[in-house]
């Protein structure tokens, strides 16, 4: 880029720095505060009374926290895997054809959960699942898994589709030319090249499922709290640094996953 003095520079606009600093402060200060008070020795989330790991210990010994965490991971694992498989198939189907009338509509159809307000989906699922619960008598985790799978699909779909679109189709032609059957073309060429996209989609779906509150809150039966809904329930009653401690661990896990995601996508480019 040429950088002559006459060029427009956003940095020299009045107020730019102020706005930028303000945005970052609003984004990160609350999180920093939350993390700091996770280590508070007292019961307050606002008054510092010394350093302690007691709230982490409390959370670790809280059976309901552990139970909710395990449930969250169970739902997220199953939902992410199923959603990624579905998203991979959807991505293959929407990129391996010549563009046709209605393709954009199909993209929109697949990405529906990104566009319809979550609360609408949540209410709709609540009503439908309530009927099914009455009819079948089943009230297990299945409903949550199905719901999570559905809204995870577009998040898994996007990186996989991006990967497929940047893939040279001649490679598949070349494999077929070298005596690979359609199945071998897929397993020996398409899948290995698609792998970084699939991993990225899987992790994104996992994080999105782990994080969900609205749909889970509406769909869950009694005693099916996930970690986020458990935390929400606790905050309504009593706020202690235990919530800060749980959130801090949650944050660390997310950062870890995003970091892995970053390295995988960087290695593949």
């Amino acid at each position: 880029m040429a950088s002559g003095r006459s060029n427009f520079s956003i940095r020299h606009q009045p107020g730019f720095t102020t706005v930028a600093v303000l945005c970052f402060a609003l984004l990160y200060l609350p999180i920093v505060t939350l993390v700091v008070f996770a280590f508070n020795a007292g019961r307050s989330v606002a008054i510092w009374e010394g350093f302690s790991l007691r709230w982490f210990e409390a959370a670790w010994n809280n059976e309901r926290v552990i139970e909710a965490s395990i449930r969250s991971v169970q739902i997220a694992s199953v939902a992410a895997v199923v959603a990624t498989i579905a998203a991979t198939m959807a991505a293959l189907a929407t990129t391996r054809t010549r563009p046709y009338r209605g393709l954009t509509f199909k993209y929109a159809f697949i990405n529906q959960p990104l566009m319809i307000p979550e609360i609408v989906t949540a209410v709709a699922l609540l009503i439908v699942f309530a009927r099914i619960k009455v009819a079948t008598g089943y009230s297990g985790l299945g409903y949550l898994i199905v719901a999570h799978t559905a809204f995870c699909i577009p998040f898994a779909y996007l990186p996989i589709r991006a990967r497929l679109e940047s893939m040279d189709l001649t490679l598949e032609t070349a494999a077929a030319d070298l005596y690979a059957t359609p199945w071998k073309v897929f397993t020996r060429v398409t899948l290995p090249l698609l792998w970084p996209g699939i991993i990225a989609g899987l992790m994104l779906a996992f994080v999105i499922s782990l994080d969900d509150v609205v749909i889970t809150e509406f769909v869950k039966s009694g005693g099916q709290d996930t970690l986020p809904t458990y935390m929400l329930g606790q905050l309504r009653r009593l706020v202690t640094p235990e919530m800060n401690a749980i959130s801090t661990v949650f944050l660390l896990i997310s950062i870890l996953i995003v970091t892995v995601f970053f390295f995988i996508s960087r290695r593949s480019t």
Partner: peptide, 27 residues
């Protein structure tokens, strides 16, 4: 194509980027 004893050298070469030189040749 996979049933024809005919092979192609592509304009873009279309070498498999995830395989080594030898693995490309043995494919």
């Amino acid at each position: 194509p996979h049933k024809r004893p005919v092979n192609t050298v592509f304009q873009s070469y279309a070498l498999f980027p995830h395989l080594t030189v030898a693995k490309n040749i043995s494919f």
